[in-house]
Simulated assay, not measured.
Amino acid sequence: MLLPTARDLRGALTRYAEAVIEDERFPTAATARTREDRAYTLCVMTGAAEVVAALHAADALLERRGTRVRRTKRLPAVLPLETLRGDRVGTPKDVRPMSAPSPRPVHSVDEAA
Rank of each mutant, 00 (worst) to 15 (best):
A6H: 02
Y16P: 03
H107K: 10
G47N: 09
H56N: 13
L3D: 15
A54E: 03
R10L: 08
L62C: 00
E50A: 14
A30G: 04
A60P: 00
L55N: 03
R10S: 03
T46D: 04
A30Q: 04
L3H: 12
R64I: 08
P80R: 02
L75C: 02
T14S: 11
V78T: 15
R33C: 04
A53G: 13
V44I: 12
L9W: 05
P27K: 00
P80F: 01
M1Y: 00
A30L: 06
H56K: 12
A112K: 14
S108H: 06
V89E: 10
S108K: 00
R70N: 05
D59S: 01
T72Q: 12
E18S: 04
M98K: 14
R85W: 15
S108E: 06
R10A: 02
E63H: 11
L75M: 13
R33Q: 13
G86S: 02
L2S: 10
R85F: 15
R15C: 00
P103V: 03
V69D: 07
R25F: 05
E82S: 15
P80N: 04
A53D: 15
L3E: 15
T83S: 14
H56A: 14
V44S: 02
R68G: 03
D8Y: 07
E111Y: 00
L79P: 01
D37P: 04
Y40N: 00
S102W: 14
D23Q: 05
L42K: 06
P97N: 09
E50S: 12
A6C: 13
L9S: 04
T41G: 02
H56I: 12
E50P: 09
V20N: 01
L13T: 07
A32E: 06
L81S: 06
T91H: 12
R33E: 07
R96A: 13
G66C: 10
D110Y: 08
T31V: 06
A53P: 06
D87N: 12
G11E: 12
A19E: 03
E36G: 03
T41P: 02
T91Q: 14
A77E: 12
A53Q: 11
E82V: 12
A30C: 05
D110W: 04
R64N: 04
G47R: 08
L3G: 10
R71H: 01
V69I: 15
A19F: 05
L9E: 07
A58Y: 11
D87S: 11
A19N: 01
S99E: 14
L42M: 03
T72L: 15
R10K: 09
M1N: 04
R88P: 04
L42E: 10
D110V: 15
C43Y: 05
A54D: 01
V52R: 15
V51R: 06
Y40Q: 12
L42V: 00
P80S: 02
P92F: 13
R38W: 03
A57S: 03
T14H: 11
V95E: 13
A29H: 06
A30N: 03
P4S: 10
A6Y: 01
K73M: 02
D94Y: 00
T41Q: 11
L79H: 12
T83F: 14
A53I: 09
L75G: 08
R74E: 07
V20L: 11
P92A: 07
E24M: 10
P76A: 08
L55V: 04
T46N: 09
H107D: 03
R64W: 02
V44Q: 13
